[in-house]
Structure formats: C-alpha cells, structure tokens
Design a protein around this nucleic acid. Sequence first.
DNA 1: GTCATTGCAAATGCTTTGCAGTGCC
DNA 2: GGCACTGCAAAGCATTTGCAATGAC
Lengths: 138, 138
Amino acid sequence: MSDLLDRLRGRGWRLTAQRRVVAEVLDGDHVHYTADEVHARATALLPEISRATVYNTLGELVSLGEVLEVSTDGRAKRYDPNAHRPHQHLVCAKCGTIRDVHPQGDPLADLPADGRFGFTVSTAEVTYRGVCPNCAGG
Amino acid sequence: MSDLLDRLRGRGWRLTAQRRVVAEVLDGDHVHYTADEVHARATALLPEISRATVYNTLGELVSLGEVLEVSTDGRAKRYDPNAHRPHQHLVCAKCGTIRDVHPQGDPLADLPADGRFGFTVSTAEVTYRGVCPNCAGG
DNA sequence: GTCATTGCAAATGCTTTGCAGTGCC
DNA sequence: GGCACTGCAAAGCATTTGCAATGAC
C-alpha cells in the first residue's frame, strides 16, 4: 500500500496525516466501504479527521484512478481500492457483503456490433447477485 | 400497457388517476426515467399529482416486479418498465442516455463454482459503458 | 512563507415519512 | 362508507460547498 502513497507523492500530492489514514483504511482485499465507513475507521486512527476531508480524499483517489466507485444498491456509494486488477462484483442480497470475483470470458464480446446502437463501447461492469453462505444459514 | 393496468387491478390495486398516469409515463421502449422525470411528465398529464405519490407508486411497481430500479451513476435511481424481458444496459458516459441491449451468452456461466465464495448466485446485471453517436459528434 | 489542504457548518439533492383529507371500490 | 391512497410539509440520508484556519513543502 505504500506503493500507493509513493505513486501519489510522485504525482505531487501533499502527504497529510488524513490522506495517509484514508489510504491505510482502504488497504486490503474485498474492501468496499461507504464514505461513512471509511470515516468511522479513519476516526479510530486519527480522531480529528472530518467527514469532508474523507469525501475530498476519496474523490481525488477516484479521479486519479487509484480507487473505484461502485454503487450496488442505489444508496451510499462504495469505494474499491482494487483498481488495477480487472474484476467484477458479487453482492449478497441480504447483508450487502461484496466480494471481488474474476469471471471467465469477456462480456464485451457478447454484445454484437449491430446491437450497440452506434455506441463506442469501452467497458462492461458485471454485478452478480445472490445469497452468501452466512445469510443462507449454512 | 393496459396489460399492466389489468395485471395490477387483478392484484387488488386501487386504480387512481395518479397511478394510471405514472403507468402511462412509463410506457415505451428504452424508458429509464428518474423519479423526478416521471413526476415532471406525470404533471403534464395530471397537474395536481405530488412527488410523494410518484415515489410511492414507483416503489410499489418495483415491489410488484413490474418495474426495475437501475442505478447507473450513483445519483438518482432510474425506473425501467421493461421488467419482463431480460436485458442489460448500455450507458453513455457523457449524456447519461441508456439503451436496453441483449448480449449473447450468459454471464452466470462465466463465473465458475469455485470462484463464488459459497454464494448461491441468481442473477447477473451487466452495464456497458461507452459514448453514444450523438456525443461522439457523429 | 505560500498555497494546498483541513474542519466546520450550512446548503444541496434525492428520497422517505407523518398525518389529515379525499375518493376508489 | 371504510379504508387505501393522496398531498403537503417536514424530516432524513448522502454528499457538496464556502470560507477561515492550519500545516506540508
């Protein structure tokens, strides 16, 4: 994750305690926190960090392409630090848990040119929905 | 579309002028309005309809499975009356226009059992993103 | 020392809710 | 005529913004 901080410093970022903490909170696999969850976890590490700063920092990380925004439920957006490995999302319909998955094949190839309405199509996001083992009662 | 009204009446819906108008607004292909857009169009047909009623009605249509909720941009939800024909969405990154598309193949088949983290997976939503002919300047 | 960054608090956008009145069945 | 439905207005989240104070470089 200091990879990330190095990269950001290289791009002229001022490295503040707040930004360092947000980056630290986002470290890990299958991390998809809402801004509020990031703020709560950041507060545990740096009590005086403000919500506005968390929003600002997340917005910048997204602009820089270091973090992805995902909206799986129409409520709060979630932030996914796994921006450099292509993947899709598997969402539990009951508890909202999200896992990163790596399907085979390329959904783009499944959309024929004559079904694209003249669009220049560049990406395909896939959201799988189901029930996780915990919620299935297993 | 009176199919829809018939079905709803059959399920014990009270058929009010407001609900009739919301159903009428949602009639058509490639319709993906926000609640606000539905309200604006409904107001043109029935000036005294309130925003709350539009929200209520849309929520009920979603619960009944007659309309789908789509969130393609993390902003306002959109409502898709095409609930009975499986399809995916193609979104213009510039103007937000949405078209219904019908890719070949089944994304579910692309997700191997050993990559599902024990989830029981039931659906796959695909959002294609690109630029529409209008925004491409063509 | 300068200027980007922060924190606060107020504002905004979307959606939900409480409740009295209305009108469908 | 009863009770679901409507409209209004206020409340509730998630997020953005303005501006003075702070602190990284």
